[in-house]
Amino acid sequence: MSQTKKDDWSTEAYQNAASFVPKLATKIVQWLDPQPDDVILDIGCGDGVLNIQFNEILSRGSGHVHGIDASPAMIEAARKAAEKAGAEKCSFEVLDALALATAPALQSGTYTKLFSNAALHWILKGDSFSPSSSPSSSLSSSFFRSARAALVPGGLFAFEMGGLGNVAEMRAAIMMAVARRVGIERAREAEPWFFPDEEWVRGVMQREGWEVLRAEREWRPTRADEGGVEGWVRLFGAKSFEVVPEEGGERESCIREAVEVLEVVCREPGGGFNLGYVRLRVLARRV
């Protein structure tokens, strides 16, 4: 019997803690430069906000955007939002990005452009930062090989993800709180993110037949959303806390410990909280 994968995402929690994510995608969208006749695959599309924006351009031509995401809740929200907006150039599918190679329709080399915003640091969790230690069978190599197969020759892939140094204070507070209860090794294994640098991404992509045209990291301090530090920690840190037992309120105590530290560290003098975001932005061409 197949097991249903747990969906850790809630559209309501996302809007409360991370509505800034698509709003801050202006630069990577400029790098993508969608045109009316483009056929775009959005990897990790979330609630489809950016896809609906692309629809305004694609509706002037023969183009289309297809969004995939592993979260059924996010895909359902995206479909409803697109229907409400009359975004006929958008389609959506529940699909884990690591399963691209098993989706024949997405391996046909028909997309002119690939796009991904704030998703690959979840998808590539577990890989090494060292290009020399990433064999062709590694998770990252497999992903970029499958992504390449979705594109027409010369097609472009524009993506933005967390870069080396991203939300370091959030990671430290969460990991310390979890490690105090289950040990540093289990805390490290439970962390759900991978934040590489430009050197790493150039190495792995070039091995898989990509020409990296541009790669940059940007320090981008970001004001916390309406949910504050606590909303961010509960949404994005959920995987880390799963290794802490719930019995006796231990998990809740762990979450509160991390939140209380971060509400001191991240507090702005005028009120609100500032999060230390670092973004890795890449534009690559299928050779």
Rank of each mutant, 00 (worst) to 15 (best):
L58W: 03
S59E: 09
G61F: 14
G61S: 13
G63Q: 10
G67Y: 04
I68Q: 09
I68S: 08
D69S: 09
S71A: 06
E76T: 08
A77H: 05
K80Y: 08
K80F: 04
A82T: 02
K84L: 00
A85R: 05
A85G: 04
A85T: 00
G86K: 02
A87G: 05
A87P: 06
E88H: 08
E88T: 06
S91H: 03
V94S: 02
L95P: 11
D96T: 08
D96C: 07
D96H: 12
A101F: 00
A103S: 14
Q107M: 14
Y111A: 11
Y111S: 06
Y111D: 06
T112Q: 14
K113I: 13
K113T: 10
N117P: 05
N117Q: 05
A118N: 14
A119N: 10
A119H: 07
H121W: 04
H121R: 01
W122H: 10
L124S: 03
G126C: 10
S130N: 13
S132A: 12
S133A: 08
P135K: 05
S137Y: 12
S137M: 10
S138Q: 09
S140N: 09
S141G: 10
F143W: 14
F144G: 07
A149F: 15
A150L: 08
L151V: 13
V152R: 07
P153F: 02
G154P: 11
F157D: 11
E160D: 02
V167L: 12
A168G: 06
E169M: 09
M170Q: 15
A172C: 13
A172S: 14
A173D: 13
V178G: 13
R180P: 04
I184F: 08
A187I: 01
A187P: 02
R188Y: 12
R188P: 02
E189Y: 15
